[in-house]
Structure formats: C-alpha cells, structure tokens
C-alpha cells in the first residue's frame, strides 16, 4: 500500500526543511530565533498532519448520513 509510505516521505521532507532552516537561517543576533521557530513549526505541523493521517489510515467507522438525495447529495449544505 503506497499510502503507508506517506508519513516517511513527509518525515524526510520535514527533515530536509529543518536542515535547510538550520543552515540557511539568516546570520546575526536573531539566528537562534529563526532556527528554533522554523524547526519547531515544521515539526509540530508535521506531527499534527501525521496524527490526522494515521487516524484515517485504517478507520474503524465510516460516515453515515440520512439526508442524502442522490448523486451529488453529499454536497448539500
């Protein structure tokens, strides 16, 4: 299942981003702030995405809806 690889691909992307953020952060007295903010943001956003993705990987329940009317009923507001 190709889908199962997504978290790992995501992890690699985030790792690359973090490395880039670490080394490309603007020099000067705010370098620490740039590094920490970018790395932490990337990691926490990845974590949130990962948790959401994993929660739907093998869902135990499926949506049930009684007010559907037909082919495009799902889109009714």
């Amino acid at each position: 299942m190709a889908n199962g690889w997504a978290p790992f691909i995501g992890a690699i992307v985030v790792a690359v981003f973090c490395a880039a953020a670490w080394f490309l952060a603007p020099k000067g007295e705010n370098q620490t702030i740039w590094r920490s903010t970018l790395v932490l943001s990337a990691v926490s956003m990845y974590l949130m995405w990962l948790i959401t993705f994993l929660a739907q990987l093998h869902p135990l329940i499926s949506p049930v809806r009684y007010d559907l009317r037909g082919e495009h009923g799902g889109a009714s507001l």
């Binding site: 889908n3 993705f53 990987l57 499926s62 559907l68 799902g74």
Partner: peptide, 16 residues
C-alpha cells in the same frame, strides 16, 4: 448511488 446512508471506502486511498 450516492443515496447513502452508509459510505464505503475508496480502496487503498487515504485522504492525504
């Protein structure tokens, strides 16, 4: 045909 009320999963696909 979209009338529900139940839904089934598209095989091997997880919402990205």
């Amino acid at each position: 045909d979209g009338k529900g009320p139940t839904a089934s999963r598209v095989d091997g696909y997880t919402y990205p």
